[in-house]
Design a protein around this nucleic acid. Sequence first.
DNA 1: GGCTCTACTTGACAAATATCAAGAAAATCA
DNA 2: TGATTTTCTTGATATTTGTCAAGTAGAGCC
Lengths: 191, 191
Amino acid sequence: MAELSAYIESYFGVINPEELKQVGTLFRLKTLKKGEFYLHSGKICRDMCFVKSGLLRVYVAEGEREITQWISTPGYFATDIASFMFEIPARWNIQALSDTEIYSIHKTEHQQLGKMVKGWPELEKLFLVRCFSIMEDRIFSHLSMSAEERYQLFFAQNPELFNQVPLQYIASMLGMTPETFSRIRKKNLGN
Amino acid sequence: MAELSAYIESYFGVINPEELKQVGTLFRLKTLKKGEFYLHSGKICRDMCFVKSGLLRVYVAEGEREITQWISTPGYFATDIASFMFEIPARWNIQALSDTEIYSIHKTEHQQLGKMVKGWPELEKLFLVRCFSIMEDRIFSHLSMSAEERYQLFFAQNPELFNQVPLQYIASMLGMTPETFSRIRKKNLGN
DNA sequence: GGCTCTACTTGACAAATATCAAGAAAATCA
DNA sequence: TGATTTTCTTGATATTTGTCAAGTAGAGCC
């Protein structure tokens, strides 16, 4: 559970060790087989998790094609947050891209966090501000950058991902077709 | 201040009337002249506001051009939230597109909200979840829709805005050039 | 009312990206 | 290992979007 503590601290800042230990007990270590779903679009999402190992893909089926919104790597967080908080149908599917270990927490236990840790809602608020800010960055990249520039930026920030997941998913996540991605990749080989 | 109460309730849900009244006293009604700045990029943002009347444009100067991230209309919220929460330099400029009335609150008073209203951090958390969700939608529109589809969606959701602000700003916010916007607009006249 | 400035439109053309189709490479699995 | 499936690449071509340049329309100002 040492990793879990580290994840929580990285997201929420330093927490008193006693409390942190307690928090750890609310999460459950689970394993998802490759291809297995953590969440199906349309269901109510009552869980959230940290990825311990492996990869989760967050996507939505849009007619024929699938739009990949995000890929969660170890240390990251995954859930459909609007569904989780407001009990509305989830928009996302969340599926394991490989055998994946996660620390998962159910809504019921999540609610206990608020009582267990002093100032928890405030910590969670700051966490959400950071998430929001990341989304602002992504929007900005679509307003101001070409496909190639988005590729380069993402590659600089996540080089490892490029040999861990099918590239078509990264292409989708960056808002381009696999073909365009492939051509840009060829041009940028060795960086 | 009746409007302010309504805005707060629309964002944060129903609050005990006593508390709501108190909350109202923390905001100050201000007027920005057309062209005046509420926030300059690079400064620390220590205020947030609701727009009472008029329009605020959130944008960033990117070399020669300006990227408009958002336009805040009456009832909406405006700030650089990451700067406000973490005291880091603001990325956005926020400028009045017309004479604009706002209800503004300083960081110092904002901190009092937490003490004044029971469960405030929780309410703010849910507010941020909604903001995050809106950003997810916007990202999705860039991953899955053409410029014309984004135009149509935005027009359906904000028809009034099209005769209130320079269209080039809407174009930028939707991730296209003014020329492309103009041509799409022509094709879609009367809807 | 005419001047000036800004915003919008339009056309011609260029560049970026998507689409379709085929084949090559890589991963999976029996 | 060999067969099968999936993913990636490549070429030819179409479509979308951007760029540049010019002109028009409209708002604000004296």
